[in-house]
């Protein structure tokens, strides 16, 4: 069998399954579409280099951990201060708004992106990816309790900013 073809085939499958959630996770961290695309690109190149060492049983968790590491080194390399940067409004426009009115989606995403990084990534993993706190704790290398409390604090903040937004 052609090994190169096998690797490409497997990576293509991985891309089809996980590129979208990982891209969204990267957006949650980096707040910029172009940066998230760059990091996603680098991530898949790295995966192809380390292909033989990847355990296929937990490929999703592995991809999220690697995506986070890549995003963090991207932030360091580019000396970005993501917490202080403004939200890219163009990025919010590209959301699929089939089910909720667009202003409500944007409101939520703005509020989510205004959370501190450690809280917004937990919310993303819990709500959009359906990870358990145990899985989140393992990906972020924190305890389950920490993951849980970050999530709770984040929800309180989100509720506050959404209520504030709808009243004013």
């Amino acid at each position: 069998m052609n090994k190169t073809k096998d690797v490409i085939g497997d990576i293509e499958k991985m891309y089809d399954l996980y590129a979208k959630p990982i891209f969204y996770y990267l957006l949650t961290i980096l707040k910029k579409k172009e940066d998230a695309e760059d990091v996603l690109h680098n991530l898949f190149l790295k995966i192809s280099r380390l292909y033989e060492n990847i355990k296929m049983e937990d490929v999703k968790g592995y991809l999220f951990v690697s995506a986070r590491n890549e995003a963090m080194s991207f932030i360091q390399k580019n000396k970005r201060d993501v917490e202080k940067e403004d939200i890219d409004l163009k990025m919010l426009e590209s959301t699929n708004k089939e089910l909720l009115p667009s202003d409500e989606v944007e409101e939520l995403e703005k509020a989510l992106l205004m959370l501190p990084l450690e809280q917004r990534e937990v919310v993303f993993m819990k709500e959009y990816q359906g990870f358990t706190f145990k899985e989140i704790a393992s990906i972020l290398n924190i305890s389950e309790n920490t993951a849980n409390s970050r999530y709770r604090y984040a929800l309180v903040k989100l509720k506050k900013s959404l209520t504030r937004g709808s009243h004013g």
Binding site: V7, E12, K20, H41, L45, S94, T95, E98, V105
Partner: peptide
Amino acid sequence: YFKNTKLKELRPGLKKEILANI
């Protein structure tokens, strides 16, 4: 909010670029 929002779409062509580089 969470249940009704969908993930953002990826740029078309990104997959091809990535696979070509790999």
